[in-house]
Structures are given as C-alpha cells and as structure tokens.
Write a protein that binds this DNA or RNA. Structure first.
Length: 994
RNA sequence: GGGCGCAUAGCUCAGGGGUAGAGCGCUACCUUGACAUGGUAGAGGUCCGUGGUUCGAAACCACGUGCGCCCA
C-alpha cells in the first residue's frame, strides 16, 4: 500500500506543487471523454500583470465550475491565455528601457522596439500564468494562447483572426476611417476609446471674461426674476462668458446662447471679440443660438471651441462653425504654420466666405498667438488668464468642482482632438447583441446586469479602434497617393492628424492582397501606373520613390505604405472565444467548444469585453459566444475600498497562499462570492478557512487511525446502524445542496453547505458518535462504521474538491491507490439514500446530549463528574432509543448510567426533551434557587411562544385564509409547547418538594 | 441628471411571506485518545424609518433617510 501515516497538519507548501504537477502531467486538465462539452474561456489577464485578488476570485470561480463539471463527466475545456495589452505593455517595456538607460523607443525605431517587446514577453510575460497555477487553476495549458499570436507571425491563428475580422468589417462598411473628435492622450500620444477615459471630479476654477462687442456696440442687458420683475438693467458693451479652460479661447469659433434667452436677444447675430492675442489682430466671432447652452448656468452664454470640447463639437457641427485645433500631439500649443497675423487672416477670410468649412483646411490654421506657441497647455492657460486680467476684462474667478477626463493608464488630462481614426460601427453590431439578450439566448447572472448592458448597448457610440502605438495588431490597411483630376499625384502633405483626403485606401489581409487591389484601382486612373513590389514606410517615402523611379521611365510608380497604427487591444480580446479555438479555420475544437458554456467575469469589463465579444461573436459566428454570463463582484479590502495599486491597499493573493495555502484562499473567496456583492478579503477570514482545512485533515487522520478505508463491498443503501444510515442520508442531502448551488452560481451557498456538513455534522457529531463503536467490540458494527465513515469521507472530499482541490486530493490519495480525485465521479443525489427516520432518531440523540450538556454547564456540574440519567415519561420507543445509543449518550453527555422511571427522583435537574423529561440527580451540585430560576426562565419563554401562537389561532382571518398546512403546523407547534410547559410545571413542582 | 446596489448581532456579511442565521470577536469552562489551527456551553438583534399590500412583513411594494458604484 502506498498509504502513509498522515502528519498532524496538512503540509500545503510541499503538497500543492506536487499535486498540481501530478494532475498536469496526467493530462487531467485536457478535455477528456465523450461527455457533453463544457467550455470556459479565461478572461485573458494582461501579459504584464501579476495575480491580484480580482484574478484570484475570478479564476477560483471558474476553476470551481470546471472541476465540478469535469467530475460530472463533461468534456471540459478551460481555455487559458494572456492579453498583449497594448498601452500597458508598451509602457512597461519603455520604462524598463529608461531604467537601463537605453536609447528611447523613438530612437531605435519601430521594428527594433517591437522586437524588444517580444523579447520581454518571452522572458517576463509568463509570471501570471505561473501564479494561476499556484492557485490551482485547472486550465488546459497545452492550449495557451496570446492575443497577439506567437512572434507576430502572420500565419498565427490569432493574427489571422484579427486581420480577417477587420477586413470583413471594412468590406461591409462596418469599419471606416473618419475625422471626429477623439479622446487624445497627450502622454502616450494616442487616441483612446471613451471607456479608457476616467472622469474625475477635481478642484478647478470657472473664469468669467468679457468678450467685447465688435466696433464698440452696446445693448441693454436686462435680468428678470421668476415673476418677470426686472432685477438688473444696464448698458453693456460686452457679453460675459464663463469657462473652465481659458486656453481654448484661442480656438473659439462662436459664442452661443439659448434661443429663448431674452437677455442676449438684442445681440444675436452680432460679432464679438475674443479678448486675447495681439490687439490689432483680435478675432471676431458671431453670437449664435443653439439649444446646448443652459440659460441658468454661468452667464448663459457659452464659447464654442469645436476642436477641443465634445459638447462644443456638436454645436459647431450644427452651426458650420470652424473648429480650430490649438494643440499638438503632446498637448502643447501649436507652433507650426505661418505667424499668427497670417493665420488669423486666413480664419477671417474663411468666416467671411461662409458655408461649411473644409475640415482639413481649417485644421491647417494655427490660431495660437506667437507668444504662446510651444507652451504647455496649462502654462498657456496661466498666460491667457494673466493677459486678459491685465486688460481689465476678467469679471471674476469662481472656485468650482469640475469633472475632468483622465487617461486610465496615463493619468494625464485627456485632450479632445480632431483626428483621423478607424471606427467600428458599433451601433450596427450592437443590434444582434442586444437581441441575443432580449430573446434570452444570453442571460446575465445576476440578471440585474442586463439593464446595465442594455443601457450601454442602446447608447453605443462608434468605437475608435486605432491606436498610435507600436505594440499591437497593426491595422491591415495600405495607402497609396491620391491622383488629381489631371492624372498627377496630389502633392498635399499628409500629416499625423489629417491624412490627405485623396489617399487611396486598400484594406487587405496581406500586402499581396493590397497590391492586387491597388492594381485594379489605379488602372481606373489611366494606363501609366505601375504598382511597386516594395512596401514603403510613409507617404513621403512613397512620393520620393515615385519621383525617383518616374524619372527613369516616365511612368507613375505607385508605392504603398501601411497604416502605422495598431488596433485597440480589446479588438483582439473581443475575438477570444473563437480565435483561441482556431477560427477562421473550421477546427474540430471550434465546432465542439463554440459557443462556450458560460463567461465568468467582473462587472467592470462588461462594456470593455463582454459587449465586444457579443458583437464580434455574433458577427463572425452568427451565434452568441455564451448562453450565460456570470458577473461576480470586485474584491475590496477590509474597509470596503476597491483595491488598487495607487491606494496601496492591495492584498497579495500569493502572500496569502504562502501563509494559509491556496485552498484556504480559494474557499474564502468562494464563501464570500454572494451574488451582487463585492468580496471583502481579510486575513482572519482566510485563517479561519485554513483552520477548516486543518479540521478536515484531522478528521481524515482520525478515520485513518481507525482503519476506515474505502470498502467496495459497502453498500450505503444497506447500512444497518442508525448512525450510518443517518450519515449516508446527510451526505446525500449535502451532495444535492452543493450541486444545486453550484449549478445556480451561488458559490457562497455551496461553500457553506460543505462547511456545515463537514464541520457541524460529520466532525462534531458523526465522528464523535462513531467513537464508541470503534472502541467497542462489536466487530460487525465496527466494520460497517469504518466503511460508512470512509464512504462519507469520500463524498466529502469529492464535494469539497472544486473549492479545496489540494487538501482533498491529498487525503483521497492517502486512503487508497486509485484514480485522482479530480477525475472521480461527482456524487449526485440518490433518492434511495434518503432516510428521514434515521435522521429523526439521530437528531433525538443529538438534542438529548445537547440538552444534558447545557444544564450541566449551567448547574456548574464539573466536567469530570459522571452522573446518572433517568428518563421520565418517555415512550417505549424512547426507551429503546436510549438502549441503542447507550454508549454514545454516556460518553458524550458524560453519564454514569441511563435508566427510565415513572417519576423523577428528588434533587434532580430536569431537562425537558421531546415530550419526556431527562432527570439528572445531581444533589451534590444542585443549587435549588438556580435550578428554579432556570426552569422559570424556560417556562416564560415557552409561554410566550404559546401566547403568540394562540393570538394567531384566535385570528379568524388567519384560520380561514392561511394555507391549511400553515395552520396545522401552528397547532402542532402549540401542542409541543404545551406539552413542554406541562413537563416544566411538573419539574417545578418536584423542585418545590425539596 | 439617468441607472444599479446596499442598510439584519460588537465587526464582516448570508438569508428570506409564518420558528433570526454564519464567521470573527466576546464570556465561562475543558489539554477527554483526530484536531487548542481544537472542544463544550453562553451572552448578544426594534432585521434603517414611515406608510401600503397581506390572515400574517424583517422579507413584497411605495416613499423617506444614509452610504456605495456606474454612466452623462
């Protein structure tokens, strides 16, 4: 036999790694058997990440489901992998380069940098995977995937999937390039999506400035109260404007007031002056009406800077107001273009011309006065304020809480900018995704998240998917120079912000395809176009090369260059449920495991990830990626604060694993994962569940010491001892409960069902009750009880395994040479194992012992003293029960002998128990007054119960309307209480005799 | 402004139309042969407030109060 004597404690440190290795090398994590497929794709952690509590919770729950379903015979695939995490990874590697004092990213160039990131990924990108293993995650690691593919090889499935989806969406018009206002991150110098912007309330200011009316015009400014009484009347030569961002005044295109605002009616349509910049070139802008300004907010008049504010952008679009860009990629004031005087003249001419302004042309105009050029935007703000103030045009400064947008990764203030970006038509893709939830094809658990999902999906904006980064899936689009009407290249200079509009775009999965497209496209412009085989790096290179080659043969040489941008990380994560399974190929895995069975995730990425998987899954596979989405809470610290790096309140799951074992951490997380609640982690709690695993360990040790071994000849249906019938019954009930609760994603209830059964039933009672059997000499009883104990322990190990895989597997293996616990068959509920009679009888025994113990303590009977028990007024069955459980009662209630009698002896403490009285003659210890007080107290309590029931029963409405069973139950309860009262009265009477 | 959630024992939280629960903490006793990472017994609750529905509400509904989160 391989069994070894168990040590006093479970040495989780040594066992965890050994057991994990054994499972993995046995291939136990791979989908096996012919069972129904069960599939979960892991929410891929960032490759830069290390395991935090949120991962620990998320993966514990997934592992519970996977281990559970695997034991239930399903063919389980838990698909693991990591996310390339565009910005985060680029940031990490850049920081590392800086620490090593290596040349910067821009110095070494794109290719070398990307190579460095790959190197980093191979060397350091596996941290979190190893940490997941320590948690016990039973992922099929042989199928591990990375959202970027391996080494970016174009042949890689992940890359193919991304390219195909992009090109397909493009060809259907669902991906397009557009000039819109985006959230620009001046630190990373990239656009980011709305979701990556964090709006925070910060202390700010609201500046009120005078915008003088053109030509010194004046008007009568009248303010009225609610009743129409005039409260202010004065002549003004200005309009008062309030702003939180004075530096953007330089780009104002208009001042807007609400159409119903009578105060400004006299000056609508007139011009006013932006009170900043060189006096002789002050720009004049029109006062217009729009529904956007709120007459009750500030002065009611709003400056419109279409290029740097999302609300203003809408107003500007509606009113054909030019949007002047003021800043560069780093968020500094522009210093390109001609001197201010010239640029301002351009703007003036533009306004005079009227009509819809040309966005590219307007973008080329730099309206930053010469003295502000090149300044950081916040420095420029100070200067603008000071200059206006010096001129006496500042009315007031208010301290004010303002909402400010920050980049969630960079932490810097986001600058709205008009740029060219790629957008996904999310509105169109959202339709089937909404429908899938409406029709119940995909359900949220708990279901209240459905509303959150709808709200987001119904108001979804175009998804900006291009990022100006180097690390990521490069956008599969190539450009060629545009061709003028005269067949010549457009010589407009493309720039970062606004690509020349006459560029030709070829969206293709490869350069080869792009070339093919280019050949057809350019043929339309004339016969003299030759498509070069060489890809170039930029528009400028394309032009230079074309000119050079053209000199030789007089032909138009077309050089293509690829879009330098990469895709939003979430674009590739959105394909995860099928890209990991081999799509776009029709693999057997895809066929078997898509759609997946359930998605387990936290609510903070419903929008980022769940919504996108729904959209892209339905788009590519025509089926929703999962029928259920289980949303768990966040892990918060002991004060209920969200754990975060910046707050420094994170608890490291690995430290807890080191200290208390992975099982303890897992159980803690599961036990607290109540639906709709955050999980609060605290060390004492983890410690408590470590104690629980020790408890189980010692129960197993006890079983081992008493030679309880799995006995194949033991049939739980045929147990003869009440004790064993009862534990079979209880284990069966526990199996039913744990199964039901896991199925319903009520992990906390499943955990607590296990906890209660193991500790409060099996350890506290069954093992205690079994001790007299093990110590007695009834060999048959001993044999059966050993087998029953082993059987029950096996059920326990199985039911607990998904929660505490390590300790359970270790115990399982120590009892017999057999197949691993993790691949054993789940104990399902078996109606044939039910035995209510046995349960009733054992509860009778347990209650009697508890009752005796209770009075012993109250009467201060010394623990060591063994006292006799006389049951008074019991039935014949009671007498038989006493006899059957004689050993147990004596041992656990510390009794010397047990007998029955018609009347209680004098000087006895009396315990009312199930219609009888257990008399304990403890004359030596008894304190008559105390005993009397105890009985009176109990009597009072019982009388109150009876009174409550009587009140209910006296209520005609209750008797008539309540369900019959409920009324009957009350009658039964009353009868029991009354019987108890009689016994108590008798006991008190006997006490009086003393 | 819109949405979601929470309020139950000292603390952290389950639960849920008829009988108030757990863990930790606290008190007393116990090193009894699996376990002191343990055992036994106990104290501790106007289930936030006000109305409503109901025979019956701590639970369901409405409103209020306080707190938290998400979106704008």
């Amino acid at each position: 036999m391989s069994e070894k004597q168990l040590d006093k404690n479970f040495d989780f440190k040594a066992a965890e790694a050994r057991l994990y290795e054994a499972w993995e090398s046995a291939g136990a994590f791979k989908p096996a058997g012919e069972g129904e497929p069960y599939t979960i794709v892991i929410p891929p952690p960032n490759v830069t990440g290390s395991l935090h509590m949120g991962h620990a919770l998320n993966n514990t729950l997934q592992d519970i489901l996977c281990r559970f379903e695997r034991m239930r015979g399903k063919s389980v695939l838990w698909q693991p992998g990591t996310d390339h995490a565009g910005i985060a990874t680029q940031m990490v590697v850049e920081r590392q380069m800086m620490e090593h004092q290596e040349p910067r990213r821009t110095e070494i160039g794109r290719e070398a940098f990307v190579e460095k990131v790959w190197k980093w990924r191979h060397e350091s990108g596996g941290t979190i995977i190893n940490q997941l293993k320590r948690l016990g995650a039973s992922c099929d690691w042989s199928r591990e995937r990375f959202t970027m593919g391996e080494d970016g090889s174009a042949d890689d499935q992940m890359v193919k999937a991304v390219m195909k989806v992009f090109v397909d969406l493009y060809n259907e018009g669902l991906i397009y390039r557009d000039k819109r206002l985006v959230n620009w991150d001046p630190k990373f110098e990239t656009a980011i999506s709305d979701l990556e912007v964090e709006n925070r309330e910060v202390d700010g200011h609201m500046w009120h400035f005078k915008y003088p009316l053109a030509g010194g015009a004046t008007y009568e400014y009248v303010e009225k109260d609610e009743d129409g009484n005039v409260t202010l009347r004065e002549t003004r030569d200005y309009i008062s404007i309030a702003t939180t961002r004075p530096e953007t005044m330089l780009g104002d295109g208009a001042v807007a007031v609400h159409p119903s605002d009578e105060r400004y009616a006299p000056i609508v349509g007139k011009l006013c002056e932006i009170p900043v910049g060189p006096k002789e070139h002050r720009r004049l802008i029109p006062i217009i009406t729009d529904d956007y300004p709120d007459p009750d907010f500030g002065s009611g008049a709003v400056k419109i800077t279409g290029a740097h504010d999302f609300n203003d952008y809408q107003v500007a679009k509606r009113g054909d107001i030019p949007m002047y860009r003021l800043m560069d990629m780093k968020g500094a004031m522009r210093d390109d273009g001609a001197p201010y005087a010239e640029e301002a003249a351009k703007a003036k001419a533009l306004v005079e011309k009227g009509g819809t302004p040309d966005t590219s042309y307007v973008d080329g105009i730099n309206l930053v006065p010469d003295e502000y050029r090149g300044l950081d935007r916040f420095e420029a703000r100070k200067r603008v304020i000071a200059d206006i103030d010096a001129e006496g045009l500042m009315i007031e400064v208010e301290d004010k809480k303002i909402m400010q947008p920050f980049g969630d990764r960079s932490g810097v203030v986001i600058e709205p900018m008009i740029t060219d970006q790629w957008y996904v038509d999310a509105k169109t893709l959202a339709k089937p995704a909404i429908e899938a939830v409406e029709t119940g094809k995909t359900k949220f658990v708990p279901e209240n998240w459905t509303k959150t999902y709808y709200q987001w999906m119904n108001n979804i904006e175009p998804w900006c998917v291009s990022r100006q980064l180097w690390w990521g899936h490069r956008i599969p689009a190539w450009y060629g120079l545009g061709v003028d009407e005269d067949g010549q290249y457009d010589d407009g200079k493309p720039n970062r912000f606004l690509t020349n509009r006459r560029l030709e775009t070829f969206c293709a999965e490869s350069f080869k395809d792009a070339k093919r497209q280019a050949k057809d496209r350019y043929a339309k412009f004339g016969a003299g176009f030759v498509i070069a085989d060489k890809e170039v790096g930029s528009a400028q290179a394309a032009l230079d090369n074309a000119v050079l080659d053209g000199e030789d043969d007089g032909k138009n040489h077309v050089f293509l260059w690829r879009d330098p941008d990469v895709l939003d990380t979430w674009f590739s994560s959105g394909l995860w449920p099928f890209s990991t399974l081999g799509w776009p190929d029709e693999t057997p895995e895809l066929k078997k495991h898509y759609p997946t069975s359930v998605l387990v995730t936290a609510f903070d990425i419903i929008f980022f990830w769940v919504a996108r998987m729904m959209m892209l899954g339905l788009y590519t596979q025509k089926k929703a990626p999962f029928p259920e989405v289980y949303i768990h809470g966040l892990v918060v610290d002991e004060n209920g604060q969200k754990m975060s790096k910046s707050k420094g309140n994170g608890v490291d799951p690995l430290e807890l694993i080191d200290q208390f074992g992975a099982d303890a951490l897992r159980f803690t997380l599961a036990a607290q994962a109540a639906q709709g609640r955050n999980v609060r982690i605290s060390e004492p709690r983890v410690e408590g569940y470590r104690n629980f695993s020790t408890k189980l360990w010692n129960a197993a040790r006890f079983a081992e010491m008493n030679e309880c071994k799995p006995d194949p000849t033991f049939d739980p249906k045929k147990a003869t001892l009440t004790l064993n019938k009862w534990i079979v019954h209880e284990a069966n009930q526990c199996a039913a409960e744990v199964t039901r609760e896991i199925e319903a994603y009520r992990f906390n209830d499943a955990a607590s069902a296990n906890y209660k059964f193991i500790w409060n039933v099996f350890c506290d009672w069954y093992l205690e009750l079994a001790k007299p059997v093990f110590m007695g000499d009834d060999e048959a009883a001993k044999k059966e009880t050993r087998a029953a104990a082993a059987w029950a322990l096996d059920r326990i190990l199985q039911l607990l395994h998904p929660f505490m895989p390590f300790v359970t597997e270790e115990i399982w293996g120590s009892f017999a040479e057999r197949e691993a616990l993790m691949v054993s068959q789940w104990p399902s509920f078996d109606v044939a194992l039910k035995n209510e009679d046995a349960a009733t009888e054992m509860n009778w025994v347990i209650d009697l012992i508890s009752g005796v113990r209770s009075v012993r303590q109250e009467m201060n009977v010394p623990v060591a003293a063994k006292i006799p028990l006389i049951l008074v007024g019991g039935t014949k069955e009671d007498a038989e029960k006493l006899k059957r459980h004689d050993d147990v009662l004596k041992r656990l209630a510390r009794l010397s002998e047990i007998s029955t009698a018609d009347a209680a002896p004098k000087g006895a403490v009396q315990v009312v128990h199930a219609g009888a009285v257990a008399a304990l003659p403890v004359a030596d210890f008894i304190d008559i007054a105390a005993e009397k007080a105890r009985l009176v107290k109990e009597k009072d309590k019982t009388e109150k119960e009876v009174a409550g029931i009587d009140k209910k029963l006296a209520n005609k409405n209750f008797v008539d309307k309540a369900p019959k069973e409920v009324v009957e139950a009350q009658h039964t309860r009353r009868a029991n209480f009354v019987e108890q009262l009689e016994k108590l009265d008798a006991a008190l009477a006997r006490l009086a005799d003393l």
